[in-house]
């Protein structure tokens, strides 16, 4: 029986093992060590939710607390990446993207292209995404599609401890800037994770469930809701195929199309807001390239086009649920019968 650890521990372990393996890897971010002014290793907090806990004393001088200025330390990380280091910077909440967007959008993402491949930017930006922590509109967004829109960035969204470790190691070794999106509500999730180093390749979706009736495409925390819905639907005689994208850029178009060509039906589940999202992107891909295979309309299960509400009751309504996924599947299945 392989060892079980949490998603959070898997990320911490990937960082520690890569820092041990490669001295050019370092961490920079707000409170990633102990918070400015902390006197020693004992009270090092290790990030706002403790993900980098324990690294500061293990790697002296390589876990750097930055002032509360994303424009400053993200810029510094981008610069360090162009000069031969492998920074893992932490944008505490993805909602703070606006404070460092130029550094990512106009600098890191463009260097390889604008310098004709002579510059590489092996930067990882870890960031917390997603709703459900009662953290209100400025600390709960799912901005994955914002990064996915930008050519030159790779965007990763692990859904399990195994993927979190393997994808983060891959991200650190990758020579392009990678936005690594960690879902807050997954940090405590347990799963089997090898103790050894390993990588999970980018652009390879994970089939979590085989089925012939309908394809559910999703990523991040929604993977687990899709699996719950699929289990319930299986009891009703509907076999869902569940695809976890793992990375939204690069996107595993082949697996999505291959699955829809088999099932003829698609529901895309995305925790993000619905406009210009992974949900619309994948729907468009399938409508364009697998239209002939479709036996019914494509359905999307997403958050509404509103900010994330602070009210508990409203936030619960905002986030997609397994019940909503099930309802969408029934709608698509009925579309076939009606036709």
């Amino acid at each position: 029986m392989a060892r079980k650890i949490t998603y959070q521990q898997a990320i911490n372990e990937a960082l520690a093992q890569e820092m041990r393996r490669d001295t050019s890897v370092f961490i920079i971010g707000e409170d990633v060590a102990g918070g400015a002014g902390a006197p020693g290793a004992e009270d090092a907090w290790g990030g706002v939710l403790g993900v980098t806990k324990g690294l500061y004393p293990q790697f002296p001088g390589r876990v750097l607390d930055a002032p509360l200025s994303e424009i400053g330390y993200v810029g510094a990380a981008v610069g360090a990446a162009t000069q031969g280091l492998r920074p893992v910077c932490e944008l505490m909440f993805v909602d703070f993207a606006g404070c460092c967007l130029d550094q990512i959008l106009n600098q890191a993402a463009k260097f390889r292209y604008m310098f004709g491949g002579k510059a590489v930017t092996p930067l990882v930006m870890r960031t917390m995404v997603g709703a459900g922590l009662r953290a209100a509109a400025q600390h709960s967004q799912m901005l994955t599609s914002l990064w996915t829109h930008i050519p030159g960035l790779k965007v990763v969204c692990p859904s399990s401890p195994y993927d979190a470790k393997g994808l983060l190691i891959q991200a650190i070794r990758d020579n392009d800037p990678v936005i690594f999106c960690e879902h807050k509500l997954l940090y405590s999730m347990q799963g089997e994770v090898p103790e050894e180093l390993y990588t999970v390749p980018f652009g390879e979706a994970n089939y979590l469930r085989d089925g012939d009736d309908i394809t559910l495409v999703t990523y991040g925390r929604m993977v687990h809701l899709a699996m719950d819905a699929a289990a319930s639907l299986a009891r009703q005689g509907i076999d869902c195929e569940v695809l976890d994208l793992r990375t939204t850029s690069p996107l595993d178009e082949d697996s999505i199309l291959e699955s829809v060509e088999k099932t003829g039906r698609l529901v895309v589940i995305d925790e993000a807001n619905p406009r210009c999202s992974m949900a619309t992107d994948i729907s468009a891909l399938v409508a364009q390239k697998a239209f002939a295979a479709l036996k019914g309309p494509i359905e999307m299960v997403t958050a509404p086009h509103t900010p994330v509400p602070f009210s508990d009751a409203l936030e619960d309504l905002y986030i997609p649920t397994a019940a909503k996924i099930e309802a969408a599947v029934h709608k698509v299945m009925a579309g076939r019968n009606a036709a």
Binding site: Y162, G166, P194, E196, L197, Y198, T199, V200
Partner: peptide, 8 residues
């Protein structure tokens, strides 16, 4: 694949 991806 999980086996094949392990370092070494």
């Amino acid at each position: 694949l999980k086996f094949k991806r392990l370092e070494g």
